[in-house]
Amino acid sequence: MAATTPQNAGLSAVPSYEQEQSQARFDALIEQDSRIEPRDWMPEAYRKTLTRQVSQHAHSEIIGMQPEANWITRAPSLKRKSILMAKVQDEAGHGLYLYSAAETLGTPRDELNDQLMSGRAKYSSIFNYPARSWADMGAIGWLVDGAAIANQVPLCRASYGPYGRAMVRICKEESFHQRQGFEILLALSRGTEAQRKMAQDAINRFYEPSLMMFGPPDEQSPNSAQSMAWKIKRFSNDELRQRFVGMIAEQVKVLGMTLPDPELRFDEETGRWIHKELNWDEFMAVIKGNGPMNSHRLERRREAHREGAWVREAAAAYARKYENSEVA
C-alpha cells in the first residue's frame, strides 16, 4: 500500500519530542522482534536501506530472467522446456512481489525501474555472466538459486512486514527452482561423456560467483552491522556462506562431480569450512559494470521498456476514455 512520508522525518537536525517518541516506539518494535508496517514511523536511514535492498533484490529477479530465458527456446526436451519456462516466469513474479514491497516504502516502480535502466541501481552481479551451455541451467538452479535461497530464508523474518511477506511467498515458490537445477545436473552426470563434461564445466564456472553472492567478508561489509541491528538481516555474510558451502560440498558427491576448489575442507578445530580465496577484484569489476554481459543485460531491459512504451500508453489512454466501463 502506498506509504506516506512522515512529516517530521529527517527535516530538522535536532530531534523534536515527537520524533524521539516515534524513534522510541520504532526501537521497541525492533527489540520485541515485532514487524514494522508501511505506515509506521521509521528512521529515514531504515527506509533508505530497505528501499535499496528490496529494489536491488527485485532488479536481480528481473535481470536474472535473461540468462535462463536464453535457453527456453533451445531446451533439449519438452518437459525441461516447460519447467524452465515456469521458472523464468516465476522470476518475473518474484520481481513483482518485491517491487510491491519496495513501493510500500514510498518509491514508485517507475522510479525504481529508471534506476535500473540508467545503471544507477545494482543487482546480483552473477547475472552478468553468460549462460553458455544447457548445463548452466542446472548450475544456476543448484548453485545460484541455492545461494539465493540460503540468503532469503532468514529474510522471511525481516523486520519490515511487506518484505518478509514477499519473501515467504518467494521462498515457497523457489523450493522447486533449486531442485530442478540439481536434477538437470543429475541427468547430465548420468549421461554421456559430453554431457558430464558440460555439467562439470558449468559447475566450475558458477562455483566461485555463487559463493560471492553472499557479499564481501564480514570485516569488509560496512552496512551489515546496521542491517543486523535493524533485524533486516539475521545472519552475517560469512555465516551464510559457511552454511551454503557446507551444503554443496555434500550435494556435489551425489552428482559424482567436483567443486573447483582443492582447498575446500571442513576444519574440525574451528568448526568452519575453509575454501579458496575468492576473487573479489573480479567481483568488484563486475559490479562496476565490466562483467561480460552487463551492457547487454541492461540494454535488453531498456529495449523491452522502449518497445513496450506504445502499449503502456495505449492501455493508459483506453483507461482514461473508458474509466467507468463495467468489469467483465
Binding site: Y97, P108, R109, R169, R312
Partner: peptide, 29 residues
C-alpha cells in the same frame, strides 16, 4: 499519465474462507 496505477490484490483460497491480502500489482484499469 501513462503510469499504470497500483492495485491491491485479495485472494480467497477456498470456499468458506475470507479473501486475504496477497500483494499488489500495476494495471491500466
Amino acid at each position: 499519465s501513462n503510469t499504470w496505477p497500483l492495485w491491491e490484490v485479495f485472494v480467497r483460497s477456498a470456499r468458506g474462507l475470507s479473501h486475504v491480502h496477497a500483494g499488489s500489482l500495476h494495471a491500466p484499469d
